[in-house]
Design a protein around this nucleic acid. Sequence first.
DNA 1: AAACAGGCCTAAA
DNA 2: TTTAGGCCTGTT
Length: 284
Amino acid sequence: MVKNMDVAEHAGKVIFRCDDDFDLEKIFECGQCFRWTSRGDGKYFGVAKGIAAEISKTGNEITITGDAAQFADVWHDYFDLGRNYAGIRRTLCIDDYMTRASDFGAGIRILDQDRWEALCSFIISQCNNIPRIRSIIETMCRLFGDELDFRGETYYSFPSAKKIAMLEADDLAPLRCGYRAPYIIGAARAVADGTLDLESTAQRPAAEALAELKKLNGVGDKVANCVILFGLRKLDAFPIDVWMKKAIAEHYPNGFSPTVFGEYAGIAQQYMFYYQRSGNGENK
DNA sequence: AAACAGGCCTAAA
DNA sequence: TTTAGGCCTGTT
């Protein structure tokens, strides 16, 4: 029994019931993370927090590899299982458009990702498309991460900031990440030497965290807000990229402030973003 | 071929 | 304070 959640452990897997919003495809493919993939059978493989895992869902029962202790230590918080997304979602339906976007995105949860991984990943994401972002990150993990043997296959952890900090930009050439390479090295060194303390930054108000992150070369408003939302677990952060600009222009031409969504503006942002990217942005 | 992709930086008004 | 151009690379 973990945190009011009924968990059954069996043969290297944990099975738990979730009656709240929980859609694996939306969670992993809404754009918040880059290291979970499906083979088309509904099962997702990935690596998070240095652990390789497989997760699947049948009805309201979710199965994830590992034992009960690991579930309690890692996956419960990673999947934000203590939060009632369906309840929050209802509060975000402030108009017809948000009602449609929220319904469409129902099932999304904001993952509690490793802070450094989120920072590095969203630096890579700038002016890039998702397949290429994923490819760059996987190459980075393969070259500089630790090997993880999982069910007879080799996976790789996300390399630590300390590891990347020891490299030079040229060492990242195999990633084909172009001008982002020095940004990555710079961020890694700041994290490794304590210039940027992501833990303490996470404890500060979003505005202060934003200023702190933007001190890094190659980190502007958009990347910083993604880090704050996905890595520092501040659900009021509201990253605005080209898709969000389109969504706002189409549906709030007379002005808009994310503060209308309150402390869960970041979840509203994900519904808007996912809805827009799925081609449902046009006001019909 | 040329433009563009989930930005950011710098220089110039 | 806002705007234009350039930037690695890969794809269309």
